[in-house]
Design a protein around this nucleic acid. Sequence first.
DNA 1: AATGAATGAGAATTCATTCAT
DNA 2: TATGAATGAATTCTCATTCAT
Lengths: 197, 197, 197, 197
Amino acid sequence: MDKTPDPIQELVVAARRKQILDAATQVFAEKGFHRATIKEIARVAGIADGTVYTYFASKDEVLLAVLDRLNETTERKQHFVLGSEQDLKTFFRTYLQQRMALMWPNAEVFRAVLPELLVNGELRKQYYEQVVAPTIAIGEQFLQGQNEQINIPLTVRAIAGTLLGLLVLQLLGDQEIAQQWEALPDVLADLFFEKIL
Amino acid sequence: MDKTPDPIQELVVAARRKQILDAATQVFAEKGFHRATIKEIARVAGIADGTVYTYFASKDEVLLAVLDRLNETTERKQHFVLGSEQDLKTFFRTYLQQRMALMWPNAEVFRAVLPELLVNGELRKQYYEQVVAPTIAIGEQFLQGQNEQINIPLTVRAIAGTLLGLLVLQLLGDQEIAQQWEALPDVLADLFFEKIL
Amino acid sequence: MDKTPDPIQELVVAARRKQILDAATQVFAEKGFHRATIKEIARVAGIADGTVYTYFASKDEVLLAVLDRLNETTERKQHFVLGSEQDLKTFFRTYLQQRMALMWPNAEVFRAVLPELLVNGELRKQYYEQVVAPTIAIGEQFLQGQNEQINIPLTVRAIAGTLLGLLVLQLLGDQEIAQQWEALPDVLADLFFEKIL
Amino acid sequence: MDKTPDPIQELVVAARRKQILDAATQVFAEKGFHRATIKEIARVAGIADGTVYTYFASKDEVLLAVLDRLNETTERKQHFVLGSEQDLKTFFRTYLQQRMALMWPNAEVFRAVLPELLVNGELRKQYYEQVVAPTIAIGEQFLQGQNEQINIPLTVRAIAGTLLGLLVLQLLGDQEIAQQWEALPDVLADLFFEKIL
DNA sequence: AATGAATGAGAATTCATTCAT
DNA sequence: TATGAATGAATTCTCATTCAT
């Protein structure tokens, strides 16, 4: 009586979900969560309005799923980095490159998600615990033992904040960042590890 | 038929506008732009729904005005800094202190405004030109001639981004930043001007 | 800041509520609760859809209010009877006349309300406690001491049920009852108090 | 091209219809016609949504069929009574016992069907002609010649109404009737045939 | 025949905006 | 000018029904 896990069905379902989430991501990014309508998401996905509700219980769930997918991408690829260790600056630059390779392509998703994240307490909490806090924790572990003098929590947050802030700046319309983003890892590595100022 | 510029009237009008904008700022910050209703803004302002439309053409205009007021505050107080010059690090720390004294109290307004800024192209452009671009320009002027080696545009954006990113991190629920924000100028000055890592 | 009880406003509000409830009663009676739409109720009331929600929080509340109004009518006029006492049969006939004078004009409201009453547990409970139970209780008090032999609870329910059943029969399309309803008090008085069968 | 009346097929079809009608009866009784969904009826029947439409043209048809089945049951078993005749009171009590044995188990079906009956003119007409009118006619025949004084049509309707009303009272939540329903035939026989009041 | 995903019409509800008082 | 009731467009979500597999 229960769900027989038909592997073909699962593929179809996964494909449909992806189709809807892709559409939702695009429409959210263009219009923001509230101005986006199920009608338009369905239109972009090339399906009927009602079909969205076969795969997601509500518009909120669609947003959640968009967010989840973002996390999954982030999490899955994060591991590569942790093994390779050299001097801190080189490591940092490599880490940045990878981090940014993940963030930048998803910049537009961010535009879609950040607004709700800022305003929706429940969502925010979930995102902070699942994505932000772990990232910061990793950074804090790294700085542990590096330098006794520094305020580790704030320093880590400053560095994480720099990446986040640059992303937001770009979303706010800054062209320079978009154009030179490949140069950013070097610039930031210099900024944080050399006495350039 | 022309507008008689009655100075008393103007005062009354200004006071009413402020009353509405204060309420709007608060409600936008609590609920975000879309979830905020004119009814609630009016309620918080202690006036009738319709009265809002005597002073603002639409809900969008109210948001615009909230944003404008934020800009004005920022701009007006920005000048103070420019005169006093000492060594760069000290100056930077002082600058940060002032900048943050402006930004942090308005953090919640940011929560309300940023989502719309990210999503509303018109608004975004206006904000970028009026607030972001000038700020960056000032930074670029400062770095000009400091150090020939560095990528000035990106470095300035990185520094500005750090502030912005820390603000967003805080809005995303980070407690550490909120608790230690007074320590931030020192931490950042060290991070950028000393070789601490 | 709170509600200033403006007597004129209250009249207007009461009139509007009545206007909506009249329309709702009619549409509920014609189509039943579920098939009735707010759109049609508003149309019959001669107002816009949204206006209904100025006076009632939801469609359910409209039904509740229709029901309440039915109760009020019933309660208010019930008192007349209780004082006048003669022989039981005469009293019963008089009581029936009054009861039916209340029920028959509201027959169509019943058609509207009964379906929901049968299906909606919450509503049903409220209706039973507020209307049915008190009516039965009154009947039981009357029979108390009349005749020791009889099963008072069931007898009272049978008599009340007869009235209710005749109403339902009529709602089911019986013409005879509708045509002769003025003869019913006599017929029932004979049926219950004379040995006619 | 013609329909081949395969007897085995017919059995299968009949079994499926019963399966669906049983499920529908249950779900209608629980939730009422409108709140019941084809999805749930199918789930309870253990089949797919679409399959319902292989056996019934629409949700309305399912209701019709539930009602029809109710009628058939009632009609089929009604005949037994007509032969056995004794004194009227005894006969009446016996008749009641049988009638109630038919009605009470189907009380919950009534809850589902009555609302639609009250509201749906077509259904109502059909039900009245097929079930109510014949029952009343039988009663009228019985009273014919019993007593010249009485208003036969109304008296019969009163008696039938009593049964119907008691059923509705029970559906409205009355516990007493449900608990004592076996005593009802005696109570009613006394009420109608003895001068107890 | 059976399935159940897809469809899309339709319903309740919200809320920015208008306008008579 | 201030009011707040009235408006009705727009939105989310439901569910009877269809139809390709």
